[in-house]
Protein backbone atom coordinates (compact mmCIF):
# COMPACT_ATOMS: atom_id res chain seq x y z
CA UNK A 1 0.00 0.00 0.00
CA UNK A 2 1.52 3.28 -1.09
CA UNK A 3 1.25 6.64 0.62
CA UNK A 4 -0.95 7.94 -2.22
CA UNK A 5 -3.46 5.12 -1.64
CA UNK A 6 -3.45 5.86 2.05
CA UNK A 7 -4.07 9.57 1.54
CA UNK A 8 -6.88 8.84 -0.94
CA UNK A 9 -9.03 7.32 1.81
CA UNK A 10 -11.12 10.04 3.45
CA UNK A 11 -11.21 8.29 6.83
CA UNK A 12 -7.44 8.56 7.00
CA UNK A 13 -7.72 12.35 6.90
CA UNK A 14 -9.98 12.24 9.92
CA UNK A 15 -7.53 9.84 11.55
CA UNK A 16 -4.62 12.16 10.81
CA UNK A 17 -6.32 15.16 12.41
CA UNK A 18 -7.36 13.18 15.49
CA UNK A 19 -3.95 11.53 15.85
CA UNK A 20 -2.25 14.93 15.65
CA UNK A 21 -4.56 16.34 18.36
CA UNK A 22 -3.98 13.28 20.57
CA UNK A 23 -0.21 13.26 20.12
CA UNK A 24 0.25 16.98 20.75
CA UNK A 25 -2.02 17.08 23.78
CA UNK A 26 -0.47 13.90 25.22
CA UNK A 27 2.93 15.53 24.84
CA UNK A 28 1.64 18.61 26.65
CA UNK A 29 0.24 16.40 29.45
CA UNK A 30 3.72 15.16 30.25
CA UNK A 31 5.64 18.39 29.57
CA UNK A 32 3.31 21.11 30.85
CA UNK A 33 4.60 22.89 33.95
CA UNK A 34 1.12 23.71 35.18
CA UNK A 35 -0.80 20.85 36.79
CA UNK A 36 -4.21 22.23 35.83
CA UNK A 37 -3.10 22.66 32.22
CA UNK A 38 -1.83 19.07 32.19
CA UNK A 39 -5.23 17.82 33.38
CA UNK A 40 -7.03 19.92 30.75
CA UNK A 41 -4.74 18.64 28.01
CA UNK A 42 -5.61 15.13 29.16
CA UNK A 43 -9.25 16.05 28.45
CA UNK A 44 -8.23 16.98 24.90
CA UNK A 45 -6.30 13.74 24.44
CA UNK A 46 -9.26 11.72 25.71
CA UNK A 47 -11.70 13.60 23.49
CA UNK A 48 -9.47 12.81 20.52
CA UNK A 49 -9.44 9.16 21.54
CA UNK A 50 -13.24 9.17 21.72
CA UNK A 51 -13.27 10.52 18.16
CA UNK A 52 -10.93 7.72 17.15
CA UNK A 53 -13.32 5.18 18.67
CA UNK A 54 -16.17 6.69 16.66
CA UNK A 55 -13.99 6.33 13.57
CA UNK A 56 -13.54 2.66 14.46
CA UNK A 57 -17.35 2.40 14.82
CA UNK A 58 -17.16 1.70 18.57
CA UNK A 59 -19.85 4.16 19.56
CA UNK A 60 -20.70 2.86 23.01
CA UNK A 61 -17.08 2.79 24.15
CA UNK A 62 -16.57 6.31 22.79
CA UNK A 63 -19.46 7.71 24.83
CA UNK A 64 -18.47 5.72 27.91
CA UNK A 65 -15.03 7.30 27.58
CA UNK A 66 -16.55 10.77 27.35
CA UNK A 67 -18.92 10.21 30.29
CA UNK A 68 -16.59 8.39 32.67
CA UNK A 69 -13.26 10.01 31.88
CA UNK A 70 -14.06 13.54 30.82
CA UNK A 71 -17.15 13.75 33.00
CA UNK A 72 -15.95 12.13 36.21
CA UNK A 73 -12.26 11.23 36.33
CA UNK A 74 -10.98 14.65 35.26
CA UNK A 75 -13.25 16.36 37.77
CA UNK A 76 -11.77 14.06 40.43
CA UNK A 77 -8.29 15.03 39.24
CA UNK A 78 -9.08 18.73 39.44
CA UNK A 79 -10.39 18.16 42.99
CA UNK A 80 -7.16 16.34 43.83
CA UNK A 81 -5.07 19.17 42.40
CA UNK A 82 -6.99 21.80 44.34
CA UNK A 83 -7.03 19.87 47.62
CA UNK A 84 -3.34 18.95 47.62
CA UNK A 85 -2.45 22.52 46.63
CA UNK A 86 -0.26 21.28 43.82
CA UNK A 87 2.22 23.89 42.62
CA UNK A 88 0.56 25.93 39.88
CA UNK A 89 2.96 28.88 39.67
CA UNK A 90 5.13 29.49 36.63
CA UNK A 91 8.58 28.70 38.01
CA UNK A 92 7.93 25.53 39.96
CA UNK A 93 9.99 22.41 39.44
CA UNK A 94 7.36 19.84 38.46
CA UNK A 95 9.91 17.54 36.83
CA UNK A 96 13.01 16.22 38.48
CA UNK A 97 16.41 16.67 36.91
CA UNK A 98 16.96 13.29 35.26
CA UNK A 99 14.90 13.85 32.13
CA UNK A 100 17.32 12.27 29.65
CA UNK A 101 17.23 8.67 31.03
CA UNK A 102 13.43 8.86 31.27
CA UNK A 103 13.17 10.05 27.67
CA UNK A 104 15.59 7.30 26.66
CA UNK A 105 13.48 4.62 28.37
CA UNK A 106 10.28 5.95 26.81
CA UNK A 107 11.90 6.09 23.38
CA UNK A 108 13.18 2.52 23.65
CA UNK A 109 9.74 1.29 24.67
CA UNK A 110 8.25 3.13 21.70
CA UNK A 111 10.79 1.56 19.34
CA UNK A 112 10.12 -1.95 20.67
CA UNK A 113 6.32 -1.72 20.63
CA UNK A 114 6.00 0.16 17.32
CA UNK A 115 8.66 -2.02 15.69
CA UNK A 116 6.97 -5.23 16.73
CA UNK A 117 3.60 -3.90 15.53
CA UNK A 118 5.12 -3.00 12.17
CA UNK A 119 6.74 -6.40 11.68
CA UNK A 120 3.69 -8.33 12.91
CA UNK A 121 0.87 -6.52 11.11
CA UNK A 122 2.62 -4.91 8.10
CA UNK A 123 -0.18 -4.02 5.68
CA UNK A 124 -3.23 -5.44 7.45
CA UNK A 125 -6.32 -3.39 6.75
CA UNK A 126 -9.29 -2.54 8.94
CA UNK A 127 -12.22 -2.86 6.56
CA UNK A 128 -15.96 -3.56 6.51
CA UNK A 129 -16.61 -1.40 9.54
CA UNK A 130 -20.26 -1.20 8.49
CA UNK A 131 -22.78 0.68 10.58
CA UNK A 132 -20.94 0.20 13.83
CA UNK A 133 -21.28 -2.07 16.82
CA UNK A 134 -24.74 -1.68 18.24
CA UNK A 135 -25.05 -1.16 21.97
CA UNK A 136 -27.54 -4.02 22.00
CA UNK A 137 -24.80 -6.47 21.03
CA UNK A 138 -22.47 -5.11 23.70
CA UNK A 139 -25.18 -5.32 26.35
CA UNK A 140 -26.04 -8.91 25.42
CA UNK A 141 -22.41 -9.99 25.46
CA UNK A 142 -21.80 -8.17 28.73
CA UNK A 143 -24.57 -10.11 30.43
CA UNK A 144 -23.97 -13.47 28.76
CA UNK A 145 -20.40 -14.35 27.90
CA UNK A 146 -18.73 -11.69 30.04
CA UNK A 147 -21.07 -11.76 33.01
CA UNK A 148 -18.46 -12.98 35.52
CA UNK A 149 -15.86 -10.29 34.73
CA UNK A 150 -18.74 -7.82 34.75
CA UNK A 151 -19.68 -8.81 38.30
CA UNK A 152 -16.03 -8.82 39.37
CA UNK A 153 -15.62 -5.29 38.05
CA UNK A 154 -18.66 -4.18 40.01
CA UNK A 155 -17.03 -5.59 43.17
CA UNK A 156 -13.80 -3.79 42.31
CA UNK A 157 -15.73 -0.53 42.04
CA UNK A 158 -17.45 -1.16 45.36
CA UNK A 159 -14.13 -1.98 47.03
CA UNK A 160 -12.56 1.16 45.56
CA UNK A 161 -15.50 3.22 46.79
CA UNK A 162 -15.20 1.92 50.34
CA UNK A 163 -11.41 2.10 50.23
CA UNK A 164 -11.45 5.68 48.98
CA UNK A 165 -13.84 6.78 51.71
CA UNK A 166 -11.88 4.97 54.42
CA UNK A 167 -8.56 6.40 53.28
CA UNK A 168 -9.66 9.99 52.80
CA UNK A 169 -11.79 10.22 55.95
CA UNK A 170 -10.27 12.17 58.79
CA UNK A 171 -9.74 9.90 61.77
CA UNK A 172 -11.29 11.21 64.95
CA UNK A 173 -8.78 12.34 67.56
CA UNK A 174 -8.80 10.38 70.87
CA UNK A 175 -10.59 13.28 72.60
CA UNK A 176 -13.38 13.25 70.01
CA UNK A 177 -13.58 9.49 70.29
CA UNK A 178 -14.06 9.76 74.04
CA UNK A 179 -16.71 12.44 73.63
CA UNK A 180 -18.65 10.31 71.18
CA UNK A 181 -18.51 7.25 73.38
CA UNK A 182 -19.66 9.39 76.29
CA UNK A 183 -22.70 10.63 74.38
CA UNK A 184 -23.60 7.08 73.32
CA UNK A 185 -23.65 5.82 76.88
Amino acid sequence: MTVADWIAEPTNWVYLVLALVIAVSALRVVTSTNVVHAALFLVLALAGTAGLFLLLSAEFVAWVLVLVYIGAVIVLFLFGIMITRAPTGPNVEVDHQRRAPAAMAAFLIFIVTAGSALTAFGDKQISNLGRGTSTEVIGEQLLQRFVIPFEVVSFVLLAALIGGITLARKDATPAEEMAREGSDA
Binding site: N12, A117, F121, K124
Partner: peptide
Protein backbone atom coordinates in the same frame (compact mmCIF):
# COMPACT_ATOMS: atom_id res chain seq x y z
CA UNK B 1 -7.35 2.24 7.34
CA UNK B 2 -4.33 0.25 8.35
CA UNK B 3 -4.31 -1.57 11.65
CA UNK B 4 -0.79 -0.31 12.27
CA UNK B 5 -1.66 3.37 12.31
CA UNK B 6 -3.69 2.76 15.47
CA UNK B 7 -1.11 0.47 17.05
CA UNK B 8 1.65 3.02 16.53
CA UNK B 9 -0.48 5.81 17.97
CA UNK B 10 -1.10 3.53 20.95
CA UNK B 11 2.63 2.90 21.30
CA UNK B 12 3.29 6.65 21.16
CA UNK B 13 0.70 7.35 23.87
CA UNK B 14 2.10 4.56 26.03
CA UNK B 15 5.70 5.76 25.77
CA UNK B 16 4.65 9.35 26.50
Amino acid sequence: MLLNQFLILGALLFSL
